[in-house]
Design a binder for these strands. Structure first.
Lengths: 340, 340
DNA sequence: TTGAAAGCGGTACCAC
DNA sequence: GTGGTACCGCTTTCAA
């Protein structure tokens, strides 16, 4: 059987309430008693039962993260590894732990929110919505469940969110391609409705205004393989683009494979730039130019804010936080003989 | 305030015990009453509090995973993303959730085991020990905490473990390099004591027996950057190896960067093969030959076994399970004009 | 300062 | 079949 406070109390010849006080660091406990209790706890290897603590104190000490998988497959995107380990790292200072679940469909996504929050398994949620799924967000709002969104909520203002300025970042990276002398720059994004994709397309278009007549926006699904197929299509065309901004590194990997298969060399025949700046960027070809989103900073803000909300501390008026991104320029966009 | 069983009971004009029975699907409840109770639950959006359930039923519904980070840094290794999402996927069928924590030092590692298990936050642990840390394992054993190790325990037999046959896999990949005509094959591993590294070195040596006089084993720390440095060293030597088996993909990435920096082309000047078969393998150069460990299968077995142990079902006699690995051959070892 | 006792929201046994 | 009730291990009044 487990050691409980009762056991400790009996052995220390004090009441169980006193043991509880010692545990919570109540200053009213006499030093001598405190020492004795602590010694016995140590001796008996006592640790409080978090479930009982949670039940009493209305605090699970858990934060939930639901990752959305592409249908059937497991996400190989190193971006998630980054995100998860950043969160775990950030949490390791606090007294919260991370509970990770996954969902394939939107339906199960919602079910999982329910299971996690309404059953009180977690005290709050970190949402990484690629889609503007107002449905669920509104519901979480209405029920006053603490949550912070990493990304761009359609109806900002109300929702706590931490994000990059994707429009700006995309504009910057597109400008970089223009400066490198690329003349026919395309964008490969996800389907319309995925806010992160929409935002980046907007930035791409802003950069091209007055610079390039055609706006070559292609849509496909997430994942390296989908991107490879899509890229193969548009790279086969006679008036193919000579550079492409890709929604994320994982998709850019697919684009670079397509280029290789078609005998196009990067960066001379095709410039490639993308977002996330994951480990993949060092691996692809001689290096892939990518926008570094500064995940650690992003996660830090997200976690800090979420914990404040959970603790019901007063929250900054500004519910939307923007973390600056930085362009990591590598080989894939450094065209030989480019204008300086 | 939250809706509790008491509230439901009151509204349904039954006892709280009956509500509990309905919830647990007790067949003795009259159909009419069951329907009424269920309807009111639905109406009131009732979900049982998992903390209370856990407290009573001695079951947290949580499995813990502690990932070990290299000092200071965050793991970018896509291998972990794979592992975590596989576990989450596997768990999504069961009624367990995953709690992820991280630890930097061995000390904090142990502290986290304590916090997770002794506080009853989780019902069992998945260990991914790179090191033969008998200390902690023995302790978990002694206290009868349910856990399954992914990897090779030093003192097998007692410990439940799921693993690949790393010796065999390494032998296979080394043989493949020999067949491709490489004459001076090296191994880049981690420091001695990391069982996975030791096993793979053993396999490498077994393959070379009678084939190559020198056994060129180099040791360095995990991570792409450490591997890059180490590889740069030994690739600068006059009698440098013409192929290298690397402990994992992430380190192989470092090796390939080193090769590029030194102007060595892969696979002609240098053959490179590694383990894990992560996304990186498609990205590095024209493709990186790697041993596919079949993580999903490995995780499936691990999770199934762990849950059996937690449920105290009778456990198969054989405590060590070996999942077959498969060599994914790619460009990095396909030497032009190799003997067939 | 310390102890007794009332719950937190469930489960499960026992009696009817 | 159903209700009463003890109890899981802890926190937190309320008295003493």
């Amino acid at each position: 059987m487990r050691v409980t406070q009762r056991d400790i109390a009996r052995l220390a010849k004090v009441s169980q309430a006193t043991v509880s006080r010692v545990l919570s660091g109540d200053s009213r406990v006499e030093q001598e008693i405190r020492d004795r209790v602590l010694r016995i706890m140590e001796e008996k290897n006592y640790k409080p039962d978090v479930r009982a603590q949670a039940l009493r104190s209305k605090r699970a000490g858990m934060i939930g993260l639901v990752i959305k998988r592409p249908q059937g497959g497991i996400s190989n995107d190193p971006f998630f590894a980054n995100l998860i380990s950043s969160i775990v790292d950030e949490l390791s200072g606090s007294d919260f732990h991370l509970c990770v679940d996954s969902a394939m469909s939107d339906f199960s996504h919602e079910a999982i929110y329910d299971e996690m929050l309404r059953t009180r398994r977690v005290d709050g949620l970190i949402l990484v919505e690629s889609e503007a799924s107002d449905e669920r967000i509104i519901r979480l709002q209405r029920d006053h469940f603490p949550f912070v969104l990493i990304g761009n909520p359609l109806h900002a203002g109300e929702v706590h969110s931490v994000d990059n300025d994707n429009v700006l970042a995309s504009e910057t990276v597109t400008r970089h391609l223009i400066e490198q002398g690329y003349k026919r720059i395309a964008f490969l994004g996800a389907r319309t409705g995925i806010t992160v994709s929409d935002d980046r397309i907007a930035g791409y278009q802003r950069a091209l205004r007055g610079q390039q007549a055609d706006h070559l926006v292609y849509h496909t699904d997430f994942g390296s393989e989908n991107a490879r197929k899509a890229a193969t299509e548009f790279l086969k065309q006679p008036d193919r683009p000579d550079a492409v901004v890709v929604l994320d590194d994982f998709m850019a990997l697919g684009v670079s494979i397509a280029a290789r298969e078609l005998g196009l060399s990067i960066p001379n025949d095709l410039g490639v730039a993308s977002f996330n700046d994951t480990t993949l960027c060092e691996a692809v070809g001689g290096g892939l130019t990518s926008v570094n989103l500064n995940i650690p900073a992003l996660v830090k803000q997200t976690v800090e804010r979420l914990i404040r909300i959970i603790d019901e501390e007063d929250i900054p008026v500004n519910r939307r936080l923007i973390i600056p991104a930085k362009l990591s320029i590598r080989h894939s966009t450094l065209r030989e003989g480019a204008k300086r």
